[in-house]
């Protein structure tokens, strides 16, 4: 098997897995919410309501498609497409597991091992705001525009602190390649033990970048009806909602890779001496997905526990607390690395 065909299969696989996990995250979210609020949650479609995401998808596709007459038609359609695309793009640089052996050749379980992987993630995240802005503006609706403006200012504000948190990681790892950063966290040598403050900042910023509660002000129902997707219906609305879950999945993967060792787990070295490499690869993928599922659960847990911020509180937290803390973290990391090593 050539390298190209392997990559194409890998891309397709990641694409399908992303969609599948996003679909079942919607089900998981409702189940977690029900669990936290002492309810049953969806249980009608299939056993334990497991067919609920399919029923929801069919419902979304069958609904009437309405494009407002006063909207900008091209941009109105382009908005959800861009949002979906940017949320799927990040998965390209994530190392999903240890290399697999097929025949005589060894393949990395990563679509592209570019030497600036971390910056690539950062670039794609900063582009994510366009889908929201274009959609919100093109619907020609005051609530939509307000939601879009909120989303973009929130994303720009939290990107800064996020970047600073990443810089502390880069100082430690001396590399921008995500593959390299994960490989350095062998066993339990995870970055979270060296960068607890950086991890906390990154986590808060990831919540804000994904527009999840307590930072879901762009779609604050009590003030803005539906926020940036007020005018959207049918599958275009579905794409916006769906992309949010993909964002959640991918950001959980990034958090796991940057701070929790990615596919590493204690005993990986021992296992690779006794088991066949492909089996080890499968186990390492399982380890990564366990971490990802934990963070997806964490996202939901927070959503049903903490109420939404007020907008001025959000800006204050971003600029006056997180950013100075992140800069302090960079200084501390730099100082420790210079004087103690």
């Amino acid at each position: 098997m050539g390298i190209l065909s392997f990559k194409i299969i890998l891309i397709l696989l990641i694409f399908l897995v992303s969609l599948g996990i996003a679909a079942y995250s919607t089900y998981g979210e409702r189940k977690v919410a029900a669990f936290l609020q002492d309810r049953l949650g969806p249980d009608r479609a299939g056993p334990f309501g497991l067919l609920q995401p399919i029923a929801d998808g069919v419902k979304m596709l069958m609904k009437e498609e309405i494009i407002p007459a006063v909207s900008d038609k091209i941009l109105f359609i382009l908005g959800p497409c861009i949002f979906m695309m940017t949320s799927l793009m990040t998965s390209a640089v994530i190392p999903w597991g240890t290399p697999v052996h097929i025949g005589n050749s060894v393949f990395n379980l990563q679509v592209a091992d570019i030497n600036i992987g971390v910056l690539y993630i950062f670039g794609v995240v900063s582009l994510g705001v366009y889908g929201i802005m274009i959609g919100g503006w093109a619907s020609n609706n005051k609530f939509g525009l307000l939601g879009a403006v909120r989303a973009s200012s929130q994303m720009i504000s939290y990107e800064l602190a996020m970047g600073m948190a990443i810089i502390a990681i880069l100082l430690m790892s001396n590399s921008l390649s995500l593959n390299e950063i994960v490989a350095q966290q062998k066993g339990m040598n995870w970055n979270v033990f060296y960068q607890p403050l950086g991890f906390l900042i990154f986590l808060v910023c990831a919540f804000a970048e994904c527009n999840r509660t307590p930072f879901d002000l762009p779609e604050c129902e009590t003030e803005l009806v539906g926020g940036y997707h007020t005018e959207y219906s049918s599958m275009k609305l579905g794409l916006y909602l769906f992309a949010e879950y993909i964002n959640m999945f991918i950001s959980s993967a990034v958090i796991s890779c940057l701070y929790f060792g990615g596919y590493n787990f204690p005993g990986l070295d021992y296992l690779s001496t006794v088991l066949s490499p492909n089996l080890v690869s499968l186990i390492s993928v399982g380890a990564l997905f366990t971490k990802i599922f934990f963070f997806i659960f964490f996202y939901m847990w927070i959503r049903w526990t903490i109420p939404r911020f007020r907008y001025d509180q959000l800006m204050k937290l971003g600029w006056q607390i997180l950013l100075p803390l992140a800069i302090l973290n960079v200084l501390l990391t730099g100082g420790v690395l210079t004087f103690l090593k």
């Binding site: 570019i114 030497n115 600036i116 910056l119 690539y120 950062f122 670039g123 900063s126 582009l127 705001v129 366009y130 802005m133 503006w137 525009l145 879009a148 403006v149 973009s152 200012s153 994303m155 720009i156 990107e159």
Partner: peptide
Amino acid sequence: QFMAIVHIIVYAGAIMVLFLFTVML
């Protein structure tokens, strides 16, 4: 590649978002 990605982060990701912001408002 470094120049390329920094170009995208700084110009497309930050400056043009502010431009779009202003023009929309």
